[in-house]
């Protein structure tokens, strides 16, 4: 997979990150190295290896379906930069 400046800008945009030109070139350098390392791993024959779903060998961790009191609304909203009428208030989003 080829990593270009476009790739970096695309991913930054998806992550809502505003990068300077300098940061972009640093990230381009890092990401190229990471992908090169992954390409190296691809040389291994993994056709007989099951894909890893989780690094720990534990399955079926569940909770029972019981409802308990929620958090106080005031506490939930305490860290919100803006709130109104018990709601979190954010810049307008348009679909």
């Amino acid at each position: 997979m080829e990593i270009t400046k476009n790739t970096i800008e695309h991913i930054a945009n998806l992550s809502r990150l505003d990068l300077t030109e300098e940061e972009k070139s640093m990230l381009l350098f890092d990401m190229k190295q990471i992908i090169a390392y992954m390409d190296k791993l691809k040389e291994l024959d993994t056709s007989k290896v099951k894909p890893t779903a989780h690094v720990m060998q534990i399955n079926n961790v569940f909770r029972e379906d019981k409802s308990e009191p929620s958090y106080p609304k005031e506490k939930l909203l305490a860290n919100a930069p803006l709130s109104e009428g018990g709601c979190f208030k954010v810049p307008k989003v348009v679909e």
Partner: peptide, 17 residues
């Protein structure tokens, strides 16, 4: 999480971290 799924309710009263 164990917050209720009940429909309605005051905003953000069926929520947790």
């Amino acid at each position: 999480c164990s917050c209720t799924t009940e429909f309605g309710g005051e905003p953000n009263t069926h929520a947790c971290p």
